[in-house]
């Protein structure tokens, strides 16, 4: 009998990926969570336990900003769920129609905003909505709705919703593509069986296709959730690190950036920044767990 030899090639194949991934992703993640438990006093790093979190949630100066950013972040997410995903599903439902011509052309064109960077998207919309340039007001004027125009990005009550809608405009291509793929994978026989039972057109969509694509809708929801609670770039590009006007568009990403890196007169504080990162981590983790245990396991039964 041969004694088991060590298969070195397995280690060689795994090593680079595991090393880079552990060193740059996993280790810093835990190190950030650890740094959240420290604070800097007189140039020295001291252990303070959960003090930073207490400051973040309770201290009026910090907690006001934190809850504001968290609330804004939830609103940002809700707009995506209510606008982006339904539009994406509707577009995919139309595109997946078997006799639709130019489907590939529409698909490629509608996906274009998704490939653009936040910087481009943020500035382009800022210019278009700008009252100085006047594209948006003159277009509204053309349809007789000029009175509806307001400098949306500059008003506290509209700015966040406007930015969320810009983000929806940018990312609608992703739910569209994923749902489109799911719709194409529904076997023709099922739809034909439905037709024999008299279920066609819109009712075929609601009664047959929609239940079958629920797992994809679940994936889209969790992707949207993680993406939104990790968002930063669009707000930074359009409104700057101060997330104006008067912090009305501040979300967790911009709040963490300002805290950790410092901005203008405010000095950067890596430990409070880490505490905010810790809170973001907890929120994302809760979301992912709800998805994995609550939604995905329950959806199995619809799978083909």
């Amino acid at each position: 009998m041969q004694k088991p030899r060590i298969r070195w090639h397995i280690a060689v194949f795994l090593a680079p990926a595991v090393l880079v991934y552990s060193a740059i992703m996993i280790f810093p993640l835990f190190n950030t969570l650890r740094l959240a438990l420290y604070s800097k006093v007189d140039q020295e790093r001291i252990f303070v336990g959960l003090q930073n979190f207490k400051t973040l949630f309770m201290d009026p100066i910090w907690s006001e900003q934190f809850w504001n950013a968290l609330g804004n972040n939830f609103w940002f997410f809700i707009i995506h769920m209510l606008v982006q995903n339904p539009i994406g599903i509707a577009l995919a439902a139309i595109l997946s129609h078997p006799r639709l011509r130019f489907a590939a052309l529409y698909r490629s064109a509608i996906f274009i905003p998704t490939i653009l960077s936040f910087v481009i998207v943020g500035f382009a919309w800022k210019l278009i909505l700008s009252p100085i340039w006047g594209i948006a007001p003159s277009m509204l004027d053309a349809v007789g709705l000029k009175s509806l125009f307001a400098p949306w990005l500059g008003k506290e009550e509209y700015a966040l919703t406007t930015l969320a809608l810009i983000s929806v405009w940018q990312f609608v291509g992703i739910p569209m593509m994923l749902i489109y793929a799911a719709l194409l994978s529904i076997p023709e026989e099922i739809l034909e069986a439905g037709e024999i039972d008299g279920i066609t057109g819109a009712s075929a969509f609601w009664k047959i296709k929609l239940p079958l694509i629920l797992p994809s809708i679940g994936i889209i929801s969790i992707l949207t959730f993680v993406g939104n609670f990790n968002a930063f770039d669009l707000i930074y590009a359009a409104q700057g690190a101060l997330a104006g006007p008067d912090f009305s568009t501040d979300i967790l990403g911009t709040f963490m950036y300002r805290t950790f890196f410092g901005f203008q007169l405010q000095l950067g504080d890596p430990h409070m920044g880490s505490a905010i990162a810790g809170a973001m981590f907890a929120i994302i983790l809760v979301g992912v767990c709800i998805y994995l245990w609550g939604i995905q396991t329950r959806m199995r039964r619809y799978q083909l």
Binding site: M25, F27, P28, L29, T32, N230, S274, A277, I284
Partner: peptide, 8 residues
């Protein structure tokens, strides 16, 4: 997301 670990 890897951004969570940015500070470290």
């Amino acid at each position: 997301p890897i951004r969570i670990g940015t500070v470290a």
